[in-house]
Amino acid sequence: MMNVDNARFLIVEDSPTMRQLISFSLKRFRNAKIIEAVDGLDALRKLTGGDKIDLILTDINMPVMDGLKLVSMVRHNASLKNIPIIIITTEGAEEDRERGLALGANAYIAKPIQSSHLIKTISELLAV
């Protein structure tokens, strides 16, 4: 079981406001390392660039490469496929949730986010 306090997170969001808000929530984990990416492609570059990531938090609607494509590509990459992924999005309809989870995301959180819910979800995913 990994120590969640030392986890390395990759936040994939085109909105600086949301990136900062998610980073703020992750400060609950004392020694957490936070890496930010502005879209799916930027995230893939960072994931394959040498930084070990323990969990990915990604938005869906982003320019260049959206979050669903990123989830799919991560799940089809031999060295990245086991990284837990949380989708954080404004798309809160049930069919969107099902689509995200079917592609391989581990959790689906609809905005506006509740910090306590996010922390609980991360803790559960990394405690496995």
């Binding site: 909105s15 406001t17 900062q20 808000l21 703020f24 905005k111």
Partner: peptide, 29 residues
Amino acid sequence: YVASYQLHSTLDFREVIHIVQEILLNLVG
């Protein structure tokens, strides 16, 4: 905190309006 930080991070009118839009969508819902 995040909203006010972002809102006062620029003096560009269009950028400020864009940040207000982001806040209304992501934070207010």
